[in-house]
Write a protein that binds this DNA or RNA. Structure first.
Lengths: 221, 221
DNA sequence: CGCCGTGTAGGGGGAAACCCCGACACTCCT
DNA sequence: AGGAGTGTCGGGGTTTCCCCCTACACGGCG
């Protein structure tokens, strides 16, 4: 093939890099053009070689993949980054995608999957590890499920009067009674009345449970 | 290959199906096991054949892909759906992913990309068309860019000590000093100390600004 | 018409938060 | 050896919150 996919491997385990390199080199359309042992080296290599794809480990000493990602995106914008990790923490996935990563793969994945993922991201696609894909899909499903209005708390929340709702939101945002009175041009005492009526209706006990409910109902912002 | 990827094609254009079928059949690991001309037929076929992957067109008469998707997900939960479309409306992408689709590809895409996408989703991954991936990435980039001005706050936040960080989060969640003291097994006075040190470091004035910062930094949950 | 929910406001008292101090131990750095 | 940062606690005073109760006007509803 005239234009192989040029790849940089970044992982602190030399043996692992060697293994990957031999695996990838066996494919005629893939070429490993550089290796890095930590995030710093990886950023430098990316800037110098401008590879098509970087296979990036998250757990590396001195500078991990998550720290290196933004720098890579800045210095090699055309380069797609496929993040490799041992841990299936869904939080990582979110961080990676928000930081401009193009793919997310577990180290437990099959070799075929790695090849498939590399080719996908090289073509510009997004690739997400099966397990995490399922997480995303479940999350999307949960999202729509969470929207169902038959939730007890949600019903109670919607039964609040206009003023009570405003006080609910403002309280959740941490405003003091005095601030709310100022904002709504009311007496502090009036604010207190709304608040206590509202707390009673929602069967809440203290600011903490109020904030938790607000986050649950996603009424902030 | 003993276990080829079993595929159902759903598109109302017979010639297009024929073309795809010959394209896919040329690959030794792919096998087209059924074809459908509209969404209804496709759902029935999916339920009967339980294929590995369905290549699903959005624009079909009587019942389009978007309508068929939920039914397919219900009757063939193990089946991954790769949605094919002529239009690059980003809204479609969102709908597809929320409905449980595993991939999104434009008809303008190269044949190689289709093969790559089919293999990716068959392995359980998510695949997104380059153009749309770029949209997503740009969006993520814009997200991070938008957060640049608040970077000072982020730096300050990370300069907090462990305990101060805990107090920050708990306070943002609405916990009272007494509750925090209880949770962390500390004296209320100690909690007060952390809180006041923390507030001074972050240059905050009152709970409201604290909560706003917490939401901005997205450190809750 | 009277009841109920709502918007508005207040009094009073105890509890909690907040503010400005000081204190001491322990670690790390210079 | 000394200072900076942190983890831990306390006193004392001012402000705010929280709770219970009262009050009145207005609109809808049976």
């Amino acid at each position: 093939m005239k234009n192989p996919i040029r790849i940089v491997l970044a992982d602190d385990h030399t043996v692992l890099r060697a293994g990957l390199k031999s695996l990838l080199s066996a494919e005629s359309d893939l070429e490993v053009v550089g290796e890095a042992g930590d995030g710093i080296d990886c950023v430098a290599l990316a800037a110098e070689l401008q590879p098509d794809v970087i296979v990036l480990d998250i757990n590396m000493p001195t500078c991990g993949g998550l720290e290196a990602l933004p720098a890579i995106r800045e210095r090699a914008p055309e380069c797609r980054v496929l993040v490799l990790t041992m841990h299936d923490d869904p939080g990582y996935l979110r961080t990676v995608l928000r930081s401009g990563g193009s793919g997310f793969l577990l180290k437990q994945s099959a070799a075929d999957e790695l090849l498939s993922a590399i080719r996908s991201v090289a073509e510009g696609g997004l690739y997400v590890s099966p397990r995490h894909a399922r997480v995303l899909l479940d999350q999307a499903a949960a999202d729509t499920a969470r929207r169902r209005p038959d939730d007890e708390n949600h019903v109670r929340y919607r039964s609040l009067s206009d003023r009570e709702t405003e006080i609910f939101k403002l309280t959740a945002l941490g405003h003091s009674n005095a601030e709310m009175a100022e904002i709504l041009a009311l007496s502090v005492k009036t604010v207190e009345t709304y608040k206590s009526r509202m707390m009673k209706k929602l069967n809440l006990d203290g600011r903490a449970s109020l904030v938790r409910l607000a986050l649950e109902l996603d009424v902030l912002h």
